[in-house]
Amino acid sequence: MQVESVAWITERKNVLMGFFFLLTLLAWIAFVDERTKRPWRFYWLALILYMLALSAKTTACTLPAALLLILWLQKKPINRERILQIAPFFLLALGMGLVSVWWERYHQGTRLALAPLGPIERILVASRALWFYLGKLIWPSNLTFIYPRWTIVSTRPLEYAWLLAGAGLCAVIYFGRRRLGRGVEVAAAFFVATLSPVLGFIMLFTFYYTFVADHY
């Protein structure tokens, strides 16, 4: 699904962002590990690596959520101290995210990309997009550069099927967490959080043509 990241030099930012994103997570895991000697070295390393990830692509702005999920997965307390440690990551993400939104809105000509869509329609787009990406992740067939842009009509009951299916899956994961463990919950939360910038709530230039793309 990431052919563009390899074939196009302009999409090499995905590779760079992913590389530094994962290194940031590894540094954070080392920092919160009680067995690590001089853990603050890894904290500052994680912060530097995160700045590099954001410099490559601002989609990395979702990383602070991943840091919290790591703490929760490892059953570590999410207290005031941990929140303060994550705060610099959040501020970096917020700053770069706002710059990207401003750039997309005023320099990429995206102010009207989603103008006809109200809050309900955007939620419907997001719910359908999540299932689209999950499907392509499981079975990456019929890939294409531009997928047909969906026509979302909030008055049609069938449009809510994706949303209801998503709510049902969340219920299954939640009520089955004792058997499934925290890993499934964390994976699902990370999947949604990572895709959140491209689900239709923030205007992107590509939404003129399609609501989904393989390189996301």
Rank of each mutant, 00 (worst) to 15 (best):
residue 2 Q to R: 07
residue 4 E to P: 06
residue 8 W to Q: 11
residue 8 W to M: 13
residue 16 L to A: 13
residue 17 M to F: 06
residue 17 M to R: 03
residue 23 L to A: 04
residue 23 L to V: 06
residue 27 A to V: 10
residue 29 I to R: 02
residue 31 F to C: 13
residue 33 D to A: 07
residue 39 P to D: 07
residue 41 R to G: 14
residue 43 Y to L: 07
residue 43 Y to E: 05
residue 45 L to A: 14
residue 46 A to D: 06
residue 47 L to N: 04
residue 49 L to I: 05
residue 54 L to G: 01
residue 57 K to E: 12
residue 64 P to L: 11
residue 65 A to T: 15
residue 71 L to W: 05
residue 71 L to D: 09
residue 72 W to Y: 04
residue 72 W to E: 04
residue 74 Q to R: 15
residue 76 K to L: 15
residue 83 I to K: 07
residue 84 L to H: 03
residue 86 I to T: 06
residue 87 A to P: 01
residue 87 A to V: 11
residue 89 F to M: 14
residue 90 F to E: 05
residue 96 M to N: 01
residue 97 G to K: 09
residue 101 V to H: 12
residue 101 V to G: 10
residue 107 H to P: 10
residue 112 L to M: 15
residue 113 A to T: 11
residue 113 A to G: 01
residue 121 E to V: 07
residue 125 V to N: 03
residue 134 L to T: 09
residue 137 L to W: 14
residue 137 L to H: 08
residue 147 Y to T: 11
residue 148 P to K: 06
residue 149 R to K: 14
residue 149 R to Q: 14
residue 151 T to N: 13
residue 160 Y to L: 08
residue 162 W to C: 01
residue 165 A to N: 01
residue 168 G to R: 00
residue 168 G to S: 09
residue 170 C to V: 14
residue 171 A to E: 07
residue 174 Y to C: 07
residue 178 R to D: 10
residue 180 L to T: 12
residue 181 G to M: 11
residue 182 R to F: 08
residue 183 G to K: 01
residue 185 E to D: 11
residue 186 V to C: 01
residue 190 F to E: 11
residue 192 V to P: 02
residue 194 T to G: 00
residue 202 I to F: 10
residue 203 M to N: 08
residue 204 L to Y: 06
residue 209 Y to E: 15
residue 210 T to Y: 03
residue 211 F to E: 13
residue 213 A to M: 10
residue 214 D to L: 09
residue 215 H to Y: 15
residue 216 Y to F: 13
